[in-house]
Write a protein that binds this DNA or RNA. Structure first.
Lengths: 131, 131
DNA sequence: TTTTAATCGGACTATATTAGTCTTAGAACT
DNA sequence: AGTTCTAAGACTAATATAGTCCGATTAAAA
């Protein structure tokens, strides 16, 4: 438990590949999925997420694909994982939507929020360049 | 994503409660589940795990229950979560049993293992006393 | 000695999350 | 126009988590 999703893994692999191709070369999804043996449709979804959050840029049409929208040194692990899997919520009740039945008696929320914050800070120190 | 399981949450709450009762007072599972509104059977399982891993001691029979087996300052968050949910494996392929289809081409494993290690180190710095 | 109040442990079910697929549409290049 | 891409949503499958049930065991208390 407490692990990154496969989607995050795939996303990291793909990003690393895209970054390795330089700033201007576009790489298409199929190419990546074949090279690393990743499920093509799923990878497509992941790249879309990364594109929406502005980490990569997409180029439509024939000969299209993806390229970096930022420098690798400016893309953090936190940012990547968040754009693929949503915010890091170490503790369920830190999400807005949840109504926790033990909330009134809960003795650990504050402390876990604190840990969560440190965790995010840690993930923010790691960039695609390090990967 | 990337959150502690509810079991871990419940375990932390229970542990904190047990620790608060002093070294020698036994607390039974029902008592805790009622006080914090936790599913009794599930909590029982969790306490069994904590007992097996030597964080708490169980006392059988009528009037039995649990008490701390260690000082709160000696029980780390890592230890607690691990005994409830198993080892922290940020990346699936760090487990022995998994055969990852992308392993040969995988470009991120080493780096993620590194992150995983730092994460564990971080969780090891937090003890029940801090909670 | 019997009853009672606990833990232990395994099997089981239900629910939620994650992973993956399919299909259609839209954009740009040739 | 045809081809090769991305976009996006609906859908299914697989897995992990959460929770329940029940019989066995232990030991204190009546």
């Amino acid at each position: 438990m407490l692990r990154f999703s496969k989607k995050s893994d795939y996303g990291l692999i793909a990003l690393k590949h895209i970054a390795s191709q330089g700033e201007d070369n576009v790489v298409n999804a199929r190419e990546i999925s074949e090279k690393y043996n990743l499920p093509p449709d799923l990878l497509a979804k992941i790249l879309q997420s990364l594109s929406k959050s502005g980490i990569i840029k997409s180029q439509f049409g024939s000969g299209g694909g993806y390229r970096m929208a930022k420098k690798p040194s400016e893309v953090t692990l936190k940012e990547i994982v968040q754009s693929i899997d949503g915010p890091v919520h170490l503790v369920g009740c830190s999400r807005e939507d949840t109504d926790c039945s033990i909330e009134p008696q809960c003795t650990i929320k504050q402390m876990l929020l604190n840990v969560e914050q440190k965790l995010e800070a840690f993930f923010s120190t790691i960039t695609l360049k390090d990967i």
